[in-house]
Amino acid sequence: MKKIFLIASAAAMAASMPALAKPEKGGGGDGPQAPSHGNKGQKAPGGHSGGGRVKVQRTTEFKPQRMEHKPTKSADRQVRQERKAFKADHKQMAPARQDRQEWRGRGDGRAQRVAYDHDRRDRDGWDRDDWNNDHAGIGCPPGLAKKHNGCLPPGQARKSFAVGDQLRSDWYRDYNVPLSYRSFYSDSPEYYYRYDDNGYIYRVNRQSNLVSGLIPLLGGGFGVGQMLPAGYGAYNVPIQYRDTYYDRSDAYYRYGDNAIYQVDPQSQMIESVVALLTGNSMGVGQVLPTGYDAYNLPLQYRDQYYDNDDYNYRYSDGNIYQVDPQTQVIEAIISALL
């Protein structure tokens, strides 16, 4: 059974649910039916009557999300922002701590405290390992403690640079692309490649030092047949997917690295990748990211949410986004649970 929720205050939900009604279908002369039925940029000849159009209530009640920050020129500022974001993230994760401790207690020995050197300080004067281990609460998975992204695995960490940005030369003097990728991303007269330890390789124009391309490395710590990395004991599937992917006695679901994994509860082995996410940051008040020009709703939603002069609809990562056609600003999020 399909359930459609508005991500908004409960009041907005209660107010708007009764208002949602299926529109009348256009007359027979409209030409091709579903799947193209919903994709009309303008009124079709002899098309929908005025009263039938579905209008999702503009959810002005809640604050637009913070605009995604453009990567800054200052490495220090970037780190401070990441630290803030990290703390916010981990506040939410705190309730799961009990879960994780129970999981550790099963004696599989994989969740080890990372040994760290209290005296190692970086250029900000922070003892990174202290920060990582104290603030994490969950403990950093081995191999991530040293990174300044606060224990976030590759793919979930914010990109350090966007295409068009100037690469800071003091960050990436040395060719540091991971070994298994070197044959494919090797420095050339025109470009050089640098890795940011966050799961992204950057292709940089040698003349201008401007980032001309970005290669995200998926599956950094995750893969079918591998053990779930340490630190993923708690159920952490994004909300819009929770009705579809919930823990059962024969399967657990964990989110990481822009994917949802099915995990064997006993062995902690990753059995399959059940869904992929774009990881694009899309919130109310933000401009739709590049690459969502085309109408892309799954067929079963096209009758209800179709492009018109007032609203466009775009699907991404389990949600339907209502977008202003002129400004491309996201006005509302409809959580689509398939």
Binding site: N39, P216, T278, G279, N296
Partner: peptide
């Protein structure tokens, strides 16, 4: 992400003056 049919592509290409961009799962 989502379902982009030939028809969706054609419309988007027309709106875009000859081309349209699609964001891939890979980024």
């Amino acid at each position: 992400p989502g379902v982009v049919t030939n028809e969706d592509l054609s419309r988007a290409i027309e709106r875009g003056g000859g081309k349209t961009q699609l964001a891939t799962m890979g980024g």
